[in-house]
Write a protein that binds this DNA or RNA. Sequence first.
DNA 1: ATCTATTTTGAGCAACCGTTCCAATTCTGT
DNA 2: ACAGAATTGGAACGGTTGCTCAAAATAGAT
Lengths: 182, 182
Amino acid sequence: MARYLPGLQTRDRILESTRWLLARVGLDGTTLSAILDRAKVRSGSFYNLFESKDEVILTVIREAINAVDPHPDGVGKDTVEELVEAYIEFITGQPTLAKIYLQTAVAGALNDEALAHRVLSHHETRVSRLADAIRRETRTTKARSRLEAELLLAGLNGLAFHWLLDPGFDMAARARDLVAGR
Amino acid sequence: MARYLPGLQTRDRILESTRWLLARVGLDGTTLSAILDRAKVRSGSFYNLFESKDEVILTVIREAINAVDPHPDGVGKDTVEELVEAYIEFITGQPTLAKIYLQTAVAGALNDEALAHRVLSHHETRVSRLADAIRRETRTTKARSRLEAELLLAGLNGLAFHWLLDPGFDMAARARDLVAGR
DNA sequence: ATCTATTTTGAGCAACCGTTCCAATTCTGT
DNA sequence: ACAGAATTGGAACGGTTGCTCAAAATAGAT
């Protein structure tokens, strides 16, 4: 646990380095020595600040998972459009975190039961928030709006998935098409 | 290159083992010794049959990518419903290959440029085939049917993505809801 | 300026990675 | 039964992995 300024700074450098690597070279490309090289830190300093390599990686991943949620103070008021825009903003505005999030959800969650649960529970939160917004706007049944929310979110995730493979893909435009076509 | 029966049999066991591991523990959990243990093979036999560990893994991954396509003899005739059912069949009927496919698309393709291209080109094939079917059924413009196909496929991929995280998720039912609600 | 707590350096460690090599064994056609 | 080829077992290798530790350097409060 860092107490002096230099400690806090190298801590930040390590996190930044890990974030960058996770997004570019994936989970298994993010080796300790790669993190150290990029952060310009030796292993001794690293282990003075972090418990293990896993701790840094999990810290960054949690950060990414949390970032996918829209501002929590809008609960119960936001519109479908606002929620979709928040999703688009997350994906295109923070591509690094977005890639980490998607990659983790698919690859990492296979090994780590707790992580899979975490991702799923965030997904569930987003579905119900979207369902509420749909219900407010269209005045359908609870079950029906929930179904619509699930399908809409699946569409958004699928578009993000496509964007991951092809960075030239205009994910934002397609996402708006998706909402428009409901 | 196997010529005698025992060689062919251990080759099959190695492929099966790799398939199983890729789907269960992911790419970096699929180590050589894990493959060997599960296949009940020693390294000497392995390297008598395969060039490298990568060769086996790529073989299995290509198999998974190819398996996502519906039967090629239906081109130009199949309906939207048939294509969607083929997708559902792939995901739920061959969950092992499906998991590998999805995982590869998200994680593996980041490192391997050629692999990313391969996945994308298969995706493109599916989109255009779906667009053709939509056009035949709804008689809209080419651009419009293509957009619809892209969004529909994104939805399906998103649902598969959800199913990957939560094996209890009824992906087939939601996929049919998705088609019904167009 | 001094003293303690924090931070950094960097050599070194055990465990594991994919791979090589070759002698021993097993297979198949004759 | 024999010969030649395919297959197998398994010890060993160099490289990398994540990580430890003790000594040296630095920060910050007094």
